[in-house]
C-alpha cells in the first residue's frame, strides 16, 4: 500500500489502512505458529459467543409468544430455512444446519468487525477461502455421490445446439472452478475494502479543516458497511444454496 511513501513525505498525514488486518498473538510477541492464540482466535470465539447468544440464549425460555431476541432467532431460522427450501427444494433441507452455520458465522463475524478497534476475521482470505472451498468440495463430492457421472451433465448444456455444446462445456467448466475464487474473494474483498476506506478517511481527520468532512464520510461509510455486512453474508449463503441445488439437481 501507499503507507511508506506518505509517511516518508514527512507530512502529518499517516495512513495505515491495512494495519487493522495484522494478525498478532494475544499473549506476548512471539512468532505465530498454527496453534498460537491470536486476535483472530479472540474474534472468532466472540463470533461463537454471538451466535450462541443469538440462537441459544435467546430461545432458552421457549416462549410461545416470543421475546424480541427470540423473534430474531426465529426470523434468522425462518429466513435461511425458506431460502434453502425455495432454492434446493425438500432435499436441500438436510443441509440446513450446514448452511445456517455459514450464514450465522459470517453475519456475526461481519457485524463484530463493525465494532471500532475490532479485528474483522471475514476480511481475511485465510478465512473466506476455506469457507468457499468447503462449499465447493461439498458440492462436488455430493454431486458425484448423488448423481454419479450424471453430475457431469451440469457442463453439457443439452438445450444448446450440438455444435455449441463443447464450447459451452469448456465455459461451464471454467465457471465451475472459478466459483470458490469468486465466492471467497467477494466476501473478503467487500469487507476489507470498506474497512480500509474508513481507515483512510480517519487518517484525513488529522487535518482540522477536513476533519468534519472526514467524520461525515466515516459515518456514511459505516452505514454502507453495516449494509454490506449483512448483504455479503446473505450473498454467500444464497450462492451456497444455488451451488447445492446444482449438486442435487444437476440438469439445466
Amino acid at each position: 500500500m501507499a503507507t511508506e511513501t506518505t509517511a516518508a513525505e514527512g507530512s502529518s498525514l499517516v495512513f495505515h489502512p491495512m494495519d487493522q488486518f495484522i494478525v498478532k498473538p494475544l499473549f506476548g510477541d512471539g512468532a505465530i505458529a498454527w496453534y498460537t492464540p491470536t486476535n483472530v482466535t479472540l474474534w472468532l470465539f466472540l463470533a461463537i459467543a454471538a451466535v450462541f447468544a443469538l440462537l441459544v440464549l435467546s430461545t432458552s425460555k421457549r416462549a410461545i409468544v416470543p421475546t424480541r431476541m427470540q423473534s430474531v432467532a426465529e426470523l434468522a431460522y425462518g429466513f435461511i430455512y425458506k431460502m434453502l427450501e425455495d432454492i434446493c427444494g425438500k432435499e436441500g433441507v438436510k443441509f440446513f444446519p450446514y448452511v445456517m452455520t455459514l450464514f450465522m458465522f459470517i453475519v456475526c463475524a461481519n457485524f463484530l468487525g463493525m465494532i471500532p478497534m475490532s479485528f474483522t476475521t471475514t476480511s481475511h482470505f485465510a478465512v473466506t477461502i476455506p469457507l468457499a472451498l468447503a462449499v465447493f468440495l461439498t458440492v462436488t463430492v455430493l454431486g458425484f455421490v448423488k448423481n454419479g457421472t450424471a453430475f457431469l451433465g451440469l457442463f453439457w448444456v443439452s438445450s444448446a445446439p450440438m455444435a455449441l455444446r463443447p464450447v459451452l462445456a469448456i465455459i461451464e467448466l471454467i465457471s465451475y472452478f472459478v466459483r470458490p475464487v469468486s465466492h471467497s474473494i467477494r466476501l473478503a474483498g467487500n469487507v476489507m475494502a470498506g474497512h480500509a476506506v474508513i481507515k483512510v478517511f480517519a487518517g484525513f481527520a488529522a487535518i482540522a479543516a477536513i476533519s468534519p468532512v472526514s467524520v461525515l464520510a466515516i459515518t456514511a461509510m459505516y452505514g454502507l458497511e453495516v449494509l454490506v455486512s449483512f448483504i455479503q453474508a446473505y450473498v454467500f449463503t444464497i450462492l451456497t444454496c444455488v451451488y447445492l441445488k446444482d449438486a442435487l439437481h444437476p440438469s439445466h
Binding site: 494478525v23 505458529a33 498454527w34 498460537t36 492464540p37 483472530v40 461463537i48 485465510a126 478465512v127 476455506p130
Partner: peptide, 12 residues
C-alpha cells in the same frame, strides 16, 4: 498466518 487462521476457523 494462514495455518493459524485456518486452524482457529475450523475450530470455530
Amino acid at each position: 498466518w494462514f495455518p493459524n487462521q485456518i486452524f482457529w476457523l475450523v475450530i470455530t
